[in-house]
Each structure stands twice: as structure tokens, then as C-alpha cells.
Write a protein that binds this DNA or RNA. Structure first.
Lengths: 215, 215
DNA sequence: GATCAGGAGATTGTATCCAATCATCAGGAT
DNA sequence: ATCCTGATGATTGGATACAATCTCCTGATC
């Protein structure tokens, strides 16, 4: 595996984990020093992350961790409301029983995080829960798009979930279990509707606290 | 504008125009000689085109113009059947009257190409017709996806359209004009249905000749 | 005859160096 | 006081040189 691709993975991990906040400058020289490499693999890594939407590059100027305006953030969620039901519809008939069991276990684990109480675990498990439920889907383009949308919004989700009230967290957990039930009974329609409503409710809940974050 | 981005545009154009067929090797050294540049901007360009799906890179091995199997080609069309109705639904209410007129003119121009008779013009205009009809859509991610799907399938469309019988070409033209009518009357539902059927019929028509191409 | 090991050649990946471009700030004119 | 202008410093873009890796051919072995 090349040095550039290792740097891509590490940088992506750092951005998603919140170690590098949106708007942070990514200077080639300083990154080269950090990763003990030359600027060349750094440049390739930044280009790759730009293609993923995680990094924004301005010619002859520099690279920054991509930042979203509130409208862009909400547009990502609105797009997810349309695309993810489509993807889970493809996925439901093709998921294995073992996969569905695993998704159910993730739902249980999420219950125990308490949402904002264990933010890091919640974000990681919630992401895993949803993306695994799409594992059966056959359209690589759409699953890539979904992953991109999750990645791009992750830093903001981290900040916004802090404000999420307990009742909203409980709703999230309940919806997760309903989704698992729909998967178990292979009910495509129910799964699609639940996913759409789940994302929609989350968007509306989060947008209430967006004013604080973006103002 | 950087040298790399100029190379991206030229290479993309060459691939879409059929000057570089799928499976063709893209050696860094030879490309550097062609474009009178060093290998460095070439690498950046290849990475960018890889992100667009037009180029496939294998580590330590090389880059090739992306090739699709028949199943992948048809999967692109099936995905278009789902995504493009969504996009045109977003687009219809936001297209300007001037844009719709322009789309109508494109439909007329396509009639005059005679399909396989003037293949180059047909491909260019057909592409322009559809992509312009999506110009009102507000989701950049989805329009990017649609453009990617068009680009990736273009080399194969070029080959397959050669076999397209006259009746199929006439059907295509008729459907185009029906779509224009739907745009003019701002009929979202009609536009979505027509686009879906248009893509579906094209896929079925083309797949009939795929055996020849891929066997 | 088929398969696998090994080495030569070619090609990609990385480091270093130089050139081009942009941001910043001082200085002067309006 | 504000805006424009120009020089300086920092940073990215590109070229060249070297290292790492793969491919393919050769030849030996089963």
C-alpha cells in the first residue's frame, strides 16, 4: 500500500473523529512534517480527499477541511431522505440473516450510549448501523454517495448532537429498532418509509440547533 | 488555471469523443510527452479522472481508460432510470423559459442528425439535451452523479448507437419532444415518467446489441 | 507440456529542488 | 481616512532525479 493512501486514511479518520475541524488549514509543509513524508504524497492525499468532499482546495492558495453552510448541511439531509430509502430498498432482500442480527446488536449498543452522554461511541455506532443496513445494495455509485454525505456532515453532526434532548435520542433508538424489525420481516416498504422519516425527523431536530452553531 | 486541470479537460474530452477507447493504457511517461509536461501534473489529472470514474488506476501498475462490463453498463442505465426522474422533478419548476426553448431547439437538431447517420453530433446533442433539462436541479451531488453516469457510458453508447435501427431513433426523437412539452406545461409528473420510460426503452434497445459488443 | 521461480526491464511512487502564484503589508496618492 | 500600488515573504505548482514495485520473459523443474 502506498504512502499516499495511508495518509488519506489517517487524514480522513482525523477529520471524521473531529481532530481536524472544518475550516482548518491543511498546509502541505506542516502535514509533510507530521506524517514524516515529502509534500508529494501529501498532495495526492489532499486531492483524493477533495474528491471525497472532505477537503476543499483552492489553486495556488491551499487546502482546508471542507466547511458547510447551514443550508448545505440541510441539503445533504434532504438528499439523504430521497437516496437512502432507495438504497435500503435495494438492500433489504439481499441482507443475510447474520447481517441483520449484527444490525440489531448495533441498535442495542446505541441505546446504551445515551446519545450525547457518549458522543464518540454514538456517532460511530449510528454510522455503522445505517451503513451496514445498506450493505446489500447493488449500486456502488449510490452507496458511495451515501457514504460521502455521511462523511461531509459528520463534523456538524458531532456538534449538533450535543444539544439533542433526551426525548429525541429515545425517538432515534425506537426508530432504529423499528427499522431492524422491518429488515427481519423483509418488509421493503416499511424499511423505506422508516428510513425516510428517521432522517427527516433528525434533520428537523438538528436544524433547530443549527442557528446556535452557524450564527 | 493550472496545467493539471487543462490536462484533465483535454483527456476527458478525448475519452468522451472516443479518441481513447476503454481499456487503453494511459502511461504517465507517454502522456507527459504528448502534453509536453512532466509526470507530476499528469498524475494529478489521472487522479481527478479516476474520481470521475473515467480512469481506473492500479497501484504500482498503471492507469487505463475505464472499461465497463455489460452488466455494469446496464446497471448505470438502471440507476439513471431512478435518479434522473428525481433530478428532472427538481429541475422542472426552476427552468427558465429561455432554457426550455433552448432544450426544444436541441430536440429539433437531434431530429436532423438521423441518429447513427451523424453519430458524433447525435451523441453531443443528446447529451446536451438531457443535461440541460436538469440544469434547474438544486442538488449538486445528484447532477454530478448523473454527469458521471453519462460520461462513463458514453464510449459504449457510441458503439451501440451504430446498431440502433431507424424506428428506435424515431422513438427517441418523439420522446424528446414529449419531454419538451412536459417542460413547457411544467408538468412534473409527466416529465418524470417520460424520462424514466425514455431511459428504460433505450436501455432495452441497446442491450439487444450488447451481446455483439461484449461477446 | 504446464507450472513455478527468478531476474531484467519498464513503470510507478517518492524526495528534492526550482519556478510561479498569491497573500500581506508598507507606502504614497487622492 | 481610504484606496490603490508595489515589493516581500510564504505557499503551492511543476520539473527532475532516485527508490520501490510490478510485469513479463526466460529457464528450469515436475
Amino acid at each position: 500500500m502506498s504512502k499516499a493512501s495511508r495518509i488519506v486514511e489517517q487524514l480522513r479518520r482525523q477529520i471524521l473523529d473531529g481532530d481536524r475541524a472544518p475550516g482548518t488549514r491543511l498546509g502541505q509543509e506542516s502535514l509533510a512534517a507530521e506524517f514524516t513524508a515529502s509534500r508529494m504524497p501529501i498532495r495526492e492525499a489532499l486531492r483524493a480527499l477533495e474528491a471525497e468532499g472532505l477537503v476543499t482546495i483552492k489553486a495556488h492558495s491551499g487546502a482546508w477541511v471542507s466547511a458547510l453552510h447551514q443550508e448545505e448541511f440541510e441539503q445533504c439531509y434532504k438528499l439523504r431522505e430521497v437516496v437512502e430509502p432507495m438504497v435500503i430498498g435495494e438492500s433489504v432482500p439481499l441482507l443475510s440473516g447474520a447481517q441483520i442480527d449484527q444490525i440489531g446488536e448495533l441498535a442495542d449498543l446505541i441505546d446504551n450510549t445515551g446519545g450525547a452522554a457518549d458522543l464518540r461511541s454514538f456517532l460511530r455506532l449510528d454510522r455503522e448501523f445505517h451503513l451496514l443496513s445498506y450493505a446489500g445494495a447493488t449500486y456502488p455509485f449510490l452507496t458511495d454517495l451515501v457514504t460521502r454525505l455521511w462523511n461531509m456532515t459528520q463534523p456538524y453532526r458531532r456538534e449538533l448532537v450535543r444539544f439533542m434532548p433526551a426525548e429525541s435520542f429515545q425517538a432515534t433508538c425506537a426508530e432504529h429498532h423499528l427499522i431492524v424489525d422491518a429488515l427481519r420481516s423483509r418488509d421493503i416498504d416499511a424499511a423505506q418509509t422508516l428510513v425516510r422519516l428517521h432522517i427527516r425527523r433528525t434533520r428537523i431536530t438538528l436544524s433547530r440547533y443549527g442557528e446556535v452553531l452557524w450564527s
